[in-house]
Amino acid sequence: MKWIDYENAKTVDEAIKILSQSGGKARPMAGGTDLIVQLRNKDPRTDADVVVDIKDIPDLNVLQCDPKTGLTIGAAVPLYKIYNDDNVKKYFPAIIDSASLIGGVLIQGRASFGGNLCNAAPSGDAIPNLIAHNGIATIAGPNGTRDVPVEDICTGPRQTSIGNDELLISINLPVPAAGFGASYIRFTPRNEMDIAVVGAGVSVNISEGKFTAARVSLASVAPTPIYVENAVNALVGETVGDAAIQRAANAAREAAKPISDMRGTAEYRKHLCEVLTRRALNAAIERAKEGK
């Protein structure tokens, strides 16, 4: 690995100061499961001289789940803490879908949702799920703090709208309205330690047999995870049933702009978009009916 300097920031201000003074050559690190590999492989997109360890900053380790205020996931909270949290399991069961399938047990002790979002892989398993939950990212910088919807964070493969002098603090999911259910499903040849061929994160709100709101997001079918507005439009206001679900699945298929690679052809991925959107919607509807 090329030479790096290591700084262990204890506060947000300290981290921002180091990031601001490093001329764009510092990278925050939580679990390091992506960053250390990129530095070791001399990935040109990770041109860093300084690694800023942010795991000891209290604000980034908050995991607070309350049915009245929603869910706050600090940017450095490792996945195992998320999927072992009884309140997250109870109030945000779909979040467990993502937390428990990223990597394997060894990775889940270190990797975080914050890192998954900031790494901005097209296949990031946390990202469609956070978009489906109306997630808001809280980002601190030299000029204060700003809140950004998660779907506006990723701008390209491994590129984000978070500045080099900024730091993701937390991801905040609002309290779900009544009749809410969500789900994240991905397709991989292997259950663990694999990268999504396609991932689908969805949520619905159901009232009196109709969809009152919905969110549909896909991974691995575009340069970034995408929010599929046409799929949402196919659902909202419609009667809950196979007809609306199929129209949304068709819209997801149309919105996908996948590439062909070793994991699957573009055509296969478009097919998977339809299937996974349909399955994820059915799973979300089940959860909505169970009051979860």
Partner: peptide, 22 residues
């Protein structure tokens, strides 16, 4: 690079791949 687990150690009570820890 964190895939194979040959370097597994327990770090503060959690197993990790020690190649992905500084």
């Amino acid at each position: 690079d964190g895939n194979c687990g040959a370097c597994t150690v327990k770090l503060d009570g959690r197993i990790v791949t020690s190649c992905l820890v500084l």
